[in-house]
Design a protein around this nucleic acid. Structure first.
Length: 553
RNA sequence: UGUCUGGUAGUCUAAUGGUAGGAUGCCUUCCUUUGAAGCAGGCGGCACAGGUUCGAUCCCUGUCCAGACAACCA
């Protein structure tokens, strides 16, 4: 087996192949996923996770989980835990390599001292406004030429806590005229008298992202630091800082972020949606967060597959929501049991069926997978069918019920509609009167009847009520944040959640939280964590494709 | 405004100096006790203009378009 003979599937693998050929990292591939614990992970993060863990896996390397916790005022252990749960759930394992940037505060501090001693960093007392003005003007700060001793002294004062927040900052001394503004003497450390979720009150100075990130990568022996495109302009600084203290130098490689149309993946905006009550929290099934998607019924495999299909490139990608739905359907089609649930019930009376009779019908759980077995369903004189499966005056191509028309009740009998009852006030159909054909029982059909349509049903007296939460996209616009004049909140879909009471087959009575099923002819649903034995709650994961509805649009 | 990065079907993504493959989408056929799934077929693409070349989607130049960045956030 030739170990280095594989086809790179994207540009990152090509780069790694080159490194392996040149021996730059001794053929080691060690990546990391570095979330900031200030929010929940979303589908965009899933791409970063899948890429970093996936590439390491492919090359026999390792991946660290590292929390980039350098800003105590926004970070919290709640998020540290939620993030770990989500990464694990997605299917990745960092083994014993759980790290925190805050683990390295001492080393960061030493690096800062080294920079100061070498004249590569200075303490600046300019106000943020002044620094901003000077940055734009390409003008050096008046504090730029302080002596090493003076800088060391001030930095010590910053650290000791005797200076108030904002008094001064430590800046790298690079080039105030650099084309890349990131290099215009970036801030390295700031004073923040805040309690850190891990280091408590040990520190009152905290490093900035650029400072902490590269050094963390270096300390951990990361070889390939994979991140999204917006950090590309930071790479020169990443390189500069590492070179300045002469330590292990990982290669930063950027890829484009993943966007999905009709959704947003900005942590700030997701927080806002929660704050204004547009959704019910981070794990609201409408949220593109991993916790929301999990609750919605998305499987880890479906998300991984989605990321895989989306690919890895440097082009800005806005992927169709339909691709995501395709991926869950693909997964759930194979794994879920088919059950019957009538979402919008219409009563059917089988006039020739014995009043008190109940038959037990056997239903196949998954026609594509015999090993999933069968279950039993009670059949009786009064049934509920889907209101949409009857039309008073149906067109020819309507393969369901109408006056005089026949359908097969799945796992039941063929029935014919003889009559219907209509509320003359509202015009609503309230009941159907049908006859059934005793010889047409499923699995033992000797009737010789041929019907085009098959519909689902439940027995009235045996059916269970269930709350069903029907979700739709959270936004009505493909690109809610893409309009300069219109706030994204204007596009919130008022119908993103509809709650109905459905009639479901009795076998669902003891379904556990998280159970996933296919409501036959309707869609994939899962038992929500609000569900109890007395009050079943289902979430819509994704509807089935509906070519009939599509054709009739 | 500046810097950077991109531009291959509606969307995503490959390969290639000899006009392009896959996925999804869309449209059909067949099949079907889910109008699902499945099977089969079809539709649909190299941003534009020059240049180099026998030949350019690919190399070069320019244009246009798009996105990201320009925090004491990450």
């Amino acid at each position: 087996m030739s170990e280095n003979k594989h086809n790179p599937s994207n540009f990152i693998e090509r780069i790694i192949d080159e490194h392996n050929e040149s021996g730059r990292f001794n053929k080691v591939v060690h990546t990391r996923f570095p979330p900031e614990p200030n929010g929940y992970l979303h589908i965009g993060h899933a791409k970063a996770i899948c890429i970093s863990f996936g590439i390491a896996q492919k090359y026999g390397g390792k991946t660290n989980l590292r929390f980039d916790d350098t800003n105590p005022v926004t970070e919290d252990t709640e998020f540290v835990e939620a993030i770990q749960k989500d990464v694990k759930w997605l299917g990745f394992d960092w083994e014993d390599r759980l790290f925190f940037a805050s683990d390295y505060f001492d080393q960061f501090y030493e690096n800062a001292l080294k920079l100061i001693r070498e004249g590569k960093a200075y303490v600046d007392h300019s106000s943020a406004e002044t620094m901003d003005v000077e940055k734009r003007a390409g003008k050096n700060s008046v504090y730029r030429e302080r002596s090493v001793e003076e800088n060391l002294d001030w930095f010590e004062k910053m650290k000791s806590g005797e200076l108030a927040d904002g008094t001064c900052v430590l800046r790298a001394k690079i080039d105030m005229n650099a084309d890349n503004w990131i290099l215009r003497d970036p801030v390295l450390y700031r004073i923040k008298k805040a309690t850190h979720h891990r280091t408590g009150d040990d520190w009152c100075i905290y490093p900035m992202y650029d400072f902490a990130h590269g050094y963390s990568d270096s300390i951990e022996g990361i070889t390939h630091s994979l991140c999204s495109l917006e950090f590309e302009v930071h790479r020169p600084l990443y390189d500069w800082l590492i070179d300045a203290v002469e330590i292990h130098h990982p290669q930063q490689i950027e890829f484009s972020r993943l966007n999905v149309n009709y959704t947003i993946t900005s942590k700030r905006k997701l927080k806002e949606l929660i704050a204004i009550g547009a959704v019910n929290g981070w794990d609201d099934p409408r949220m593109p967060t991993l916790s929301g998607m999990r609750r919605r019924g998305y499987t880890p495999a479906s998300i991984r597959n989605f990321i895989e299909k989306a690919g890895t490139s440097r082009r800005e990608q806005i992927i169709d929501l339909s691709m995501l739905e395709y991926c869950v359907r693909e997964d759930l089609n194979a794994s879920t049991a088919r059950v019957m649930a009538v979402l919008d019930p219409l009563k059917v009376v089988l006039t020739n069926y014995p009043e008190d009779q109940t038959e037990i019908m056997t239903a196949i759980n998954n026609p594509g997978d015999e090993s999933m077995g069968t279950r039993e369903m009670p059949f009786s004189r009064e049934l509920f069918i889907e209101r949409g499966d009857f039309m008073e005056d149906p067109p020819k191509k309507f393969f369901r019920l109408g006056p005089g028309r026949m359908v097969r009740l799945k796992n039941g009998y063929i029935i014919q509609c003889d009559d219907f009852v209509k509320d003359e006030g509202t015009g609503e159909i309230t009941e159907l009167h049908c006859t059934y054909f005793p010889e047409s029982r499923s699995g033992a059909d000797t009737s010789g009847l041929k019907v085009k349509g098959t519909i689902h049903w439940v027995s009235c007296k045996d059916a269970l009520d269930a709350e069903v939460r029907i979700y739709d996209r959270l936004f009505t616009d493909e690109n809610p944040t893409g309009h300069k004049e219109i706030d994204y909140k204007e596009f919130i879909n008022p119908d993103s959640l509809k709650v109905i009471t459905a009639k479901v087959e009795p076998s669902l009575g003891n379904a556990e939280i998280g159970t996933q099923v296919q409501f036959m002819r309707k869609g994939y649903y899962c038992v929500d964590l609000d569900s109890t034995p007395d009050h079943l709650v289902f979430n819509l994961t994704a509807t089935l494709r509906d070519s009939y509805a599509k054709k009739n649009k």
